[in-house]
């Protein structure tokens, strides 16, 4: 079972393994969400709202839907 970024709990750290091909994969890459980068989960908005992550000194907010394409470890 592959671990997706949206499955992680708040304050957990991880490394991006790869990103599944999806309509916004080029956008994710532009925001520096690339294989091999480390990140931590800063916050998750309630009711399945967006996720707030710190990735390479950069704070990024993204929806769960996009986070589901990011496979992590």
């Amino acid at each position: 079972m592959e671990l997706r970024l949206c499955d992680l709990k708040v304050e957990k750290k991880g490394i991006v393994r790869y990103i599944q091909e999806n309509p916004v994969s080029s956008k994710l890459a532009e925001f520096g969400i690339l294989p091999g980068t480390t990140f931590s989960i800063l916050n998750k908005a309630p009711f399945h709202g967006p996720i707030f992550i710190l990735i390479e000194n950069n704070r990024i907010a993204l929806r769960r839907k996009e986070a589901a394409f990011i496979i992590v470890e």
Partner: peptide, 10 residues
């Protein structure tokens, strides 16, 4: 198809 939120937070 392309509804997404991807935003840098300062």
């Amino acid at each position: 198809y392309k509804s997404y939120l991807l935003m840098e937070v300062p």
